[in-house]
Amino acid sequence: MSVLNTAPPRAAAKPGSATWRLIKAESKLSIRDKMALLWGVGIPLVVLIILGSIPSLRKPNEDTGGLTTFDVYVPVLILFNLAILAVTALPTTLAGYRENGVLQRMRTTPIGPARVLTAQLVANFAIALVAMILFLAVAGLGFGVDLPQHLFGFAVAWLLAAAALLAIGLLLTARVPGRSVASAMGMVLFFPMMFFAGLWVPISEMPAVLQNISRYTPLGAGMRAFQDAYLGHFPSVLPLLTLAVYAVGCSIIAVRWFRWE
């Protein structure tokens, strides 16, 4: 074996280049995680296509201000995607990193483990963004669903929903002992959250009590904000505030409680 070669010293590493590479690497790893892509993107996309092909779901509905049932399902599936990525894929990956010593190994480098967290958050955010645009495009081009009338309002609602869900995922990651517990707890959170977003029963058809609870769940609030944007208004304050409280509150607790090893 030869003596080690040293690369010619780089003048100075470009600031942020390591972070950027880390984000690229984590994105690649997330895309290689076939289960997360299947559940987070593949399944909601197939459901979207199936629902779009059922004619009875495409008749305007009085309860939702003239939107068809299918119109309402497009944002539900966008939230489905966000929730899978944020509360199952993200915690499972990061808890696995902690369990396998990936975070500990990063502590011995100049980069530190916090940036692995950031890179995972950015990677999942980016995948969710691409998926959201894909869903809107398929619904629009394939089935003639109009884009949300208030596009800016929709963007704000989506960003807040993404922030709230990623923060919830991070909080879940902060304390779980390992990968298997993370994925089990993610699923336990996922189903009630999706229920209150109207995945099985549209919110407008829920009894009043459930509608009220739904208002204060992250995905219920997300749905309300989305519907406002679809009907052409900037989302009302309550759902946006609810999402912001989840985002900020969960992030603060997650950062304070985070177990690195």
């Binding site: 070669n5 040293t6 690369a7 780089r10 280049s17 690497a25 100049p110 980069i111």
Partner: peptide, 15 residues
């Protein structure tokens, strides 16, 4: 990836 973390890394291909 790891070589990008350091200011003057070794040649990772050589390693």
């Amino acid at each position: 990836l790891y070589s990008s973390f350091y200011p003057r890394p070794a040649d990772w291909r050589g390693l």
